[in-house]
Nucleic acid binder design. Sequence first.
DNA 1: TTGCGTGCAAAGGTTTTGCATGGCA
DNA 2: TGCCATGCAAAACCTTTGCACGCAA
Lengths: 144, 144
Amino acid sequence: MNNGEYKTRQKQAILDFLKNNMDNHVTVNDISEYLEKNNCRVGVTTIYRYIDKLLEQGLVRKYTVDNSTSACFQYVGSTQECHEHFHLKCEACGKLIHLDCSHISELCSHIFKDHGFKTDMRRTVFYGICSACADKRKIAGGSI
Amino acid sequence: MNNGEYKTRQKQAILDFLKNNMDNHVTVNDISEYLEKNNCRVGVTTIYRYIDKLLEQGLVRKYTVDNSTSACFQYVGSTQECHEHFHLKCEACGKLIHLDCSHISELCSHIFKDHGFKTDMRRTVFYGICSACADKRKIAGGSI
DNA sequence: TTGCGTGCAAAGGTTTTGCATGGCA
DNA sequence: TGCCATGCAAAACCTTTGCACGCAA
């Protein structure tokens, strides 16, 4: 850690779990259950408090997924890393896709110049269906 | 209403309030308080249940605004109306801006063709700061 | 030793559920 | 009359807070 923060096994365990799930959102409950199974029990209070800090540092994002009542979190690494990224989230499998695409920066400039709106790409997420899930649905014959 | 649903003064009152606030998100509490002041008391249970139906019909959207613990809802009209729209949400004032812009459809086609991701524009919202709020902040000397 | 971190228990909210009653069609 | 809708109370959750104890530095 850095400024006056202590390093503890709890923080380490939470961070490890988050990093191992960068491609998916997790709830506090997910974290708690996983750690419990791995003989590394951590109180939910601690999880909430630590996640708050990570949120402030911009290392984690908070989402609300439609059908879930509790908040979802996702490790996105340092703000700089993802500053220019563009996030796509598959509503079927929950996967978060990081996309580096010049088209998006162009679009943002356009929105700013022509519509006066300053988009915050760190918060904006495109929802939809990823190709893998689209294929599955086709095979299953289901509709969107 | 339609398929087996009854029309009641409660539903009407909730819907009216939502429609009068299309430019802003409201919480269940906001609705409840407003209706109470207007001598039109409706139980929160009813509000939650009715909003659930509206969500299913796609007439209302659910958001979670960062500093609020409760969910925010916003009437967006019929799905068809907003199908081709593109939504910008100001994080400072909560205003929802409906934008009709060809650039966005182009971007979506690009994402689909080159990245295999089928974006659902009905769910996707761009977060940022609207021009009015950006101006206010400049005057106030605050940073983003 | 100092001061941050942790976890329990309790509090504070929000949202959901069960059930009897009310009201539309 | 037959159903759906409503509202109360209670339950079920999620998240935060207070406080005493634990532990990193």
